[in-house]
Design a protein around this nucleic acid. Sequence first.
DNA 1: GACATCACTGCAACCCCTTGCATTAATTGT
DNA 2: ACAATTAATGCAAGGGGTTGCAGTGATGTC
Lengths: 346, 346
Amino acid sequence: MPATIRDVAKASGVHISTVSRTFSAPHLVNVETRTRVQACAEQLGYRPNRAARALITGRTFNIGLIVADIANPFFPPLIKAAESQARRHDHHIFVADTNEDAVVEEDLVRALAKQVDGVLLCSPRMSNSLIEQLSREVPLVVVNRQVGGIPAVVMDVAHGARLALEHLTGLGHSSIALVTGPRGSWTSREIRRSAQTVARTGSFELTVIGPNQPTEDGGLAVAEQVRRGGMTAVLAYNDLMAIGLMEGLHSLGLRVPEDVSVVGIDDITLSRLTRPKLTTVATPTAAAGRAAVDMLLAHGDDRRTTAQVNLRTELVIRDSTGPAARRQSPGPQRHADPGDVVATAP
Amino acid sequence: MPATIRDVAKASGVHISTVSRTFSAPHLVNVETRTRVQACAEQLGYRPNRAARALITGRTFNIGLIVADIANPFFPPLIKAAESQARRHDHHIFVADTNEDAVVEEDLVRALAKQVDGVLLCSPRMSNSLIEQLSREVPLVVVNRQVGGIPAVVMDVAHGARLALEHLTGLGHSSIALVTGPRGSWTSREIRRSAQTVARTGSFELTVIGPNQPTEDGGLAVAEQVRRGGMTAVLAYNDLMAIGLMEGLHSLGLRVPEDVSVVGIDDITLSRLTRPKLTTVATPTAAAGRAAVDMLLAHGDDRRTTAQVNLRTELVIRDSTGPAARRQSPGPQRHADPGDVVATAP
DNA sequence: GACATCACTGCAACCCCTTGCATTAATTGT
DNA sequence: ACAATTAATGCAAGGGGTTGCAGTGATGTC
């Protein structure tokens, strides 16, 4: 039904190649012809078929962006940043949501493959080998993951976790729970690895709880375990879980931070609105989105560019952490009076 | 670099049409040949090029979904519902974000046009005529908008606004502000139209403030105007604005609901976490997502299906509304003790 | 044993567009 | 005035697939 290049050619009495050039290389066609062709095209409502064009040129000017859960406030800033960076290079971003499902994830990469110039795989849940295989089908940049020689943007959550734990031990906590994320999450493994390393110093006892759903419900679900285990502090895989956990603790009659201190990771905007405000490890999500787009686009021009971008995280101390209970400390200590106290990573 | 159908044909010694059938109509090819072809394909890492296939078949099994702001928690439930409904029909959803920009919106529809079987246009900001024009380039379903004969899914926010205002007048408010949304928003116009109709009964005075950015900042920005105007109640275009407004009022020293009552629209999850919890008009976002996908897919099979789906909204009374100030009422009245009181629309 | 039927497979046109090359006409240089 | 450019356009071969039609051999029917 929509007009094709042939219709326009017929209407304006020129060969289709002339119509084609009118749109993709206007300087090659005489100004008179060009205006006539444009007029016909306009009147017929003709638009070049981008899919057909891409079939030949190999460029779509689209970028796919796959996230584990679009409802997680962690992602929007990343997506927005990627979008504006992409727009700067005349590209569009298509977002797809995997629902934390590795199978859906694979499916989506394949669905996007030939419709985009490359895919940004954010916090993927699938296996390394599958990622490597897919990277042979479509240019890939992974975010929050390290796999083989694939371009990656990672955040040093390991360091963030260390900062968080040191903050907690500094407050006198000696029994700390680590609430991990979903199976397949590289970030979760990194955090765990880092936490176990820190724990090996012997300054506190670490209890690992997981894997869990990385949502508020997931956090809420472990509240009971934390209570039973008698831990006085918790580091959660992300803010959403930390917030859910705080709710759960509250409904169990435990106060935060008087009875239990809670630290999240991500620093989503919501973490500033909870009561108490959440202490958390801030991750540079916008920077990650920009960097990922840049890597993908650069990777097209010259091969072998920077294979990995590392971004630093920092600890944002708010009100959900305080001195360990059962100590002679004079009650909850409040940080971050008007603004936030930020301990920058080295 | 990736293998094409020709490579597989050569490797397995058959014609490309046989390879094609092996993947798109396996029952038409002999089981021996088929397995041989599949083996070759597997070994070469061949995947049918979906873009090329779509060029002929006209079907991509993808659906585009365009939203005004992916960071607005209003959208994720809609997106998720659309996704699961789409998956049920073997389709994938690609989401694009317009940043509340009508020009970007148009651009994105065109970018998606030939990569998808249709586009769900959620809360569009562009003009009716442009929407009609675009609908000739790609099948369209609009959500939260009525335009010409284009399939639409709308929510009766007009009724919701009426419920909210009646709730407020019932509490004795006689000076109410309506904080509208962005220019170009059909929903905002509907709310305004409805509010003005209700106001014409003379039971209260309505002050319209807007247009505004439909974000927390947008809400925060009008707090001062509300204070100066002396309104005792506000109906905001959406929850995000209502929440921003509450913050703004708080920092101006006004209490909610004692000094000012606030009602939002959407019932995003966040509205249950604020303090006080937000009274709001709940919109059936998930149902809208499902309905939109259904309409798009049905529209393909037989023409002239239901041209419009209307969804009902309801008022959820929480803690951000109370009796009007400067009355002899005995202080803030609390509704919704453990659960929420829901006043269903007729 | 002649003929219709059937299961496979190949052929070639086509989807919509781009692009290297050839062709033609107009312009420039000397 | 004639060769050499240059500008504008047409031609046709793709890009990676699908699909109606025809051809092949084998099987079934009576």
